[in-house]
Design a protein around this nucleic acid. Structure first.
Length: 554
RNA sequence: GGGUCUGUGGCUUAGCCAGGAUAGAGCGCCGGGCUUCUAACCCGGAUGUCGGGGGUUCGAAUCCCUCCAGGCCCGCCA
């Protein structure tokens, strides 16, 4: 309804003003939609914008196509208000299961996220990638796109060689109950310490990398074993965060099937290619001073080479490629995009996010300086369990535990997704453990509250009559939900949905405190119950799109 | 040094790309509200040179220039 009306008003304003861009935006507190076109016309027509706005409003008001939309000028602004019929329509739409979902679209999208090196557990920096990526993935599915989510598994990098070397040369037994990825990290950290002590080990590592590149069966097997072990742990963490990937793409496969050789051959034929002892691409004409090296002097490929092969493959199999990458990949990502274009291949769209650091400095798997995602989940779930136990001692322990788990994931995911990706952040335990107002649990609570009212109400006859300020504000906000989903996938900014859901919970809480539902009667009661149901459904759809469980009770 | 992102009340943050209606929130602080649909809640109050300076514009947190501060990148690592 909202988007339809937006476009309708846009067309009417175009016809009325003759302008292409009619500056139509959400009107905030003032209106459902508002235009500032009068300012622009004031310059052209040399008339005060107030007069122009008044003229436009008057002209449009006479148009029967406007239907239930009231138009008025407020100073230089042209404001549009949805009338009762449209608000009723918005609520009617919002109670439908799957509200905000779009019809199936044809373009196939591949989204890559997380793709952390399998040399240790995911830490609080990695999961910023995970949460942004998974929220985007869910928004894309909701927006109707056929989507495949991939994890690109760096299974032949230096880090993995170090892990493999560690397993072969250091006697480090796995501890009782130790998670696979944490065990691998211990081996990796220990191996790095050995290398620091004996720098000549580096040559052994180089040899391992050459062997794996040639496809030496024994070395390949050892690498795979180490990677698979670590991946088991990583997947468990992802699952705990409500995240799943459709496909794990092994980097070494591109070497094995010859794609890396093929892409090297194509790069060599580029006018920008330079071959000395290495092969590199000169991208200085595009503003990159840095050499884009694709083959080492010992003949082995580098990460960038395999990445080029990977994206060539993706580009040919999907209509759109989206990568979620840390800001440290900005340079290499831009070089990848340019080189793919030179090769006549499709470049990926890249969503960058800035770094998460610890109060004491940046994180490092190698130095063992990180807060793992598992540790974070455990701590937050523990706090949530205490909280649930205080509030709901009536519930059996098993249920309290399951609620605590959901609440913990909500707190963690929401905390991450609510912040714009371009902001670098410092991990803060106090904030992570906060379940108050700008948090995931706060939104879950509003949902549970709506469920509780509906449960107590039992059967009712839907009605759509709204009069109070709280009712109207809620209905207006509900109407915007599909437009928010659309905006998230167009701008690739999932935090917009986080803000939307929080605003909806805010409005619902205010409504809850002022407008009694169960104690009202007749049509008012039915209308309010219908509104509560619409809020419940829209909160549920919002939360699920954010990968957060919509709890019915908490 | 070059590139890039960020700088908004004590702290965290929205708004910035597509300039317009009194710069929204949360935490913390002060005060009020549970015999009333779950108080993980609600209401009121104090707190802001939107990093500094210049410019463009009828109008700048938003665009441009410049300076300052911080993160990240500038490997034959990934």
């Amino acid at each position: 309804m909202y988007q339809e009306k937006y476009h309708q008003i846009e067309r009417m304003l175009r016809a009325c003003t003759g302008e292409e861009d009619v500056l139509l935006t959400t009107g905030g507190d003032h209106a459902d939609l508002a235009s500032t076109i009068a300012f622009r016309l004031a310059k052209k027509e040399k008339r005060p914008p107030q007069k122009i706005a008044a003229d436009i409003a008057e002209k449009l008001a006479g148009n029967p196509d406007l239907g239930d939309i009231q138009v008025e000028s407020a100073g230089p602004y042209v404001n549009f208000h949805f009338g009762p019929t449209l608000l009723a329509e918005a609520v009617r739409e919002a109670v439908e299961p799957g509200y905000g979902s779009f019809p199936r679209r044809s373009s196939r999208v591949v989204l890559e996220h997380t793709s952390a090196n399998p040399n240790g557990p995911l830490h609080v920096g990695h999961i910023r990638n995970t949460v942004i990526g998974d929220s985007l993935a869910r928004a894309f599915r909701k927006a109707g796109y056929p989507l495949e989510v991939q994890y690109y598994l760096n299974d032949m990098g230096r880090q993995i060689a170090i892990v493999s070397w560690g397993f072969d040369h250091l006697e480090i037994p796995r501890r009782e109950g130790e998670k696979e990825d944490h065990y691998v990290a211990r081996v990796y950290i220990a191996a790095n310490r050995e290398i620091e002590k004996n720098p000549e080990i580096t040559q052994e590592i180089d040899l391992l990398m050459q062997k794996v590149e040639r496809g030496d069966p024994d070395t390949v097997k050892k690498f795979r074993k180490a990677v698979s072990l670590c991946l088991e742990g990583i997947r468990a963490t992802l699952a705990a965060l409500n995240v799943s990937h459709d496909r794990f793409v092994w980097e070494s496969d591109f070497v094995r099937i010859g794609d890396v050789d093929r892409v090297i051959e194509r790069v060599r034929r580029l006018p920008q290619a330079v071959e000395d002892e290495t092969l590199w691409v000169d991208l200085s004409e595009f503003g990159f001073e840095k050499r884009y090296i694709l083959r080492r002097s010992d003949g082995t490929s580098v990460y960038s080479t395999r990445d080029l092969a990977y994206h060539t493959w993706k580009g040919r199999n999907y209509d759109r490629m989206i990568d979620v990458l840390g800001a440290d990949h900005k340079l290499i990502g831009a070089q990848l995009q340019v080189t793919l274009k030179l090769l006549g291949e499709k470049p990926p769209e890249i969503v960058f996010f800035e770094f998460v650091s610890l109060p004491e400095g940046s994180m490092s798997t190698r130095a063992g300086k990180f807060v793992s995602a598992d540790e974070l989940i455990e701590e937050v779930a523990g706090k949530a369990f205490e909280e649930v136990t205080t509030r709901r001692p009536d519930l059996p322990e098993e249920e309290r535990c399951s609620i605590a788990r959901s609440v913990a994931i909500a707190a963690i995911r929401y905390d991450i997704v609510k912040v714009s990706p371009e902001k670098s952040t410092v991990f803060d335990w106090k904030e992570a453990l906060d379940f108050e107002r700008q948090s995931g649990p706060y939104i879950q609570y509003a949902h549970a509250r709506a469920c509780s009212i509906l449960e107590k109400a039992g059967e009712f006859e839907p009605a759509y009559h709204y009069e109070t300020g709280h009712e109207i504000a809620l209905a207006r906000h509900l109407a915007r939900f599909p437009a928010v989903i659309e905006q998230v996938v167009v701008e690739l900014r999932p935090h917009l949905l986080a803000a939307y859901a929080r605003d909806l919970a805010d409005l619902f809480n205010a409504f809850y405190h002022y407008d009694p539902v169960l104690k009202s009667e007749g049509e008012i009661r039915n209308s309010r119950l219908t509104l509560v149901d619409a809020v419940r459904n829209t909160l549920k759809e919002s939360l699920e799109t954010l990968g957060i469980d919509a709890l019915r009770s908490m």
